[in-house]
Design a protein around this nucleic acid. Structure first.
Lengths: 140, 140
DNA sequence: GGCATGTATATGTAAAACGCACATAGAGTA
DNA sequence: TACTCTATGTGCGTTTTACATATACATGCC
């Protein structure tokens, strides 16, 4: 949130709230692994596929750095491909360790989905207390 | 993932995968705001409530620092409370800006929930390609 | 009194993740 | 030649977060 906007009292209503990014850390990793489980691919193509999972405005640097890191961890492997027309590509494929890692992510995400449902049950289900009730509770 | 474990080929199967944290960045913020929307509270109590939303092993430092940051941003406000027995508490309440912020978070989370459903549709719904098919696809 | 325990808040530091800007280069085409 | 599209990468600073540590009040117990 920007300071100049919150001063008014009501707060900002525009679309620009700072730090609201409703996806987990390293979300790119499971997305890449899921893509690679379907078919082998390379950075530039994976970037387009990632757009469908919340990475509409993806920075190339982030993707390529992530891929290198993943390879270092052994969850993907790559071969340098120079045969096709255009610039050379680094073709990636998922490893067995990568599949295990993806499974682990899936379990973790499933758990988190339940937590989010909890959140929404409280958020939508129970309306916030009226001013009077809140004031009493405050004195409590 | 640890290197020594991924060398075998199959990869680790234990519970210790590095960097898998399936909750969104700043998840603590909407959790606190939701709690404060119900009733005013203070750090120590908020910590216990956050446990129900994926913060079972919460570090106090993280929470208190987050609360201060949130106050600086104007989405919560606090008063120093010395009346009760025990150490003094900093009582927090949500502001109007905070409610707007929470609403924004909720929309963002809803969006992300759909993305996760997409993920699971691909993950569970469509089984991974068999080895033969993958090999063909690899050669393209 | 002295001491342990539970409650309550806070800082210091360092690593990891991430966004943004920028760099490099092959291939086709006008 | 110059321009564009494809393709891969590095440098750098900010933010987020985990972990360790510090402080202090209140209560009960010996």
């Amino acid at each position: 949130m920007n300071n100049e906007e919150s001063k008014g009292g009501v707060g900002p209503r525009g679309a620009e709230f700072r730090g609201v990014e409703a996806r987990p850390r390293n979300w790119l990793v499971p997305v890449i692994l899921l893509s690679l489980r379907e078919w082998n691919s390379y950075g530039y193509e994976l970037m387009e596929r990632a757009a469908a999972f919340g990475f509409e405005a993806m920075n190339p640097g982030t993707l390529y750095r992530t891929l290198r890191q993943m390879e270092k961890e052994g969850i993907v492997e790559s071969t340098w491909e120079t045969s096709k027309g255009g610039p050379a590509r680094r073709m990636y494929s998922i490893t067995d360790a990568g599949r295990a890692y993806l499974d682990f992510w899936a379990k973790s995400l499933e758990q988190y989905q339940k937590t989010m449902e909890n959140f929404f049950r409280l958020y939508t289900g129970r309306p916030p207390l009226a001013d009077e009730e809140r004031k009493e509770r405050k004195g409590e």
